[in-house]
Amino acid sequence: MKPGKNKKKVLNIVYILLAVMVVVFFARDVFMYTINGVEELLYPIQSKIYFLGKKAKESTENVINYKELLSENTKLKNTLVEKSLLEEENIKLLEENKRLRNLLQMKDSFTFKFKVGKLSFQQTRELYESFAINLGSVDGINKNMPVLFNEALIGKVEKVFKDYSIVQMITFQDSVVSATAGDNVLGIIKGNRSEELIFEPVSIYEAQLEVGSKVYTSGISDIYPKGLYIGEISEVRKKYENSVEYILKLPFNVMDMNEIIVLTEVDR
Results as ranks from 00 to 15, higher is better:
8 K>S: 11
16 I>P: 04
7 K>H: 08
26 F>T: 11
194 S>P: 07
143 K>D: 11
214 K>D: 09
211 V>W: 05
252 F>C: 04
217 T>W: 00
8 K>Y: 09
209 L>I: 00
267 D>Q: 11
256 D>Q: 10
140 G>L: 09
100 L>P: 05
17 L>C: 15
143 K>I: 15
133 I>H: 01
107 K>S: 13
226 K>A: 04
157 V>M: 02
141 I>V: 13
12 N>P: 02
93 L>V: 08
40 E>C: 00
112 F>V: 07
225 P>S: 07
83 K>Y: 12
77 K>S: 12
144 N>C: 09
89 E>H: 09
110 F>D: 11
21 M>E: 12
178 S>C: 01
264 T>R: 00
69 L>T: 13
212 G>E: 09
8 K>I: 12
30 V>W: 11
127 L>D: 06
156 K>H: 10
108 D>H: 11
9 K>F: 09
208 Q>L: 12
255 M>A: 15
48 K>H: 07
77 K>H: 12
90 N>T: 12
51 F>M: 14
69 L>K: 14
227 G>C: 06
73 N>T: 06
238 K>Q: 13
157 V>Y: 00
167 V>K: 02
142 N>S: 15
29 D>E: 09
159 K>V: 14
73 N>Y: 03
131 F>C: 08
141 I>D: 04
151 E>Y: 11
241 E>C: 01
42 L>M: 12
49 I>H: 09
154 I>L: 03
110 F>V: 10
263 L>R: 05
44 P>K: 03
176 V>Q: 08
18 L>R: 09
135 L>E: 01
254 V>D: 02
212 G>T: 08
69 L>M: 12
90 N>H: 11
90 N>G: 02
73 N>F: 02
235 E>F: 08
191 G>W: 05
182 G>N: 01
70 L>E: 14
13 I>H: 00
187 G>R: 01
176 V>G: 00
43 Y>D: 08
128 Y>P: 01
186 L>P: 05
263 L>A: 01
202 V>L: 08
143 K>F: 12
181 A>E: 01
189 I>G: 02
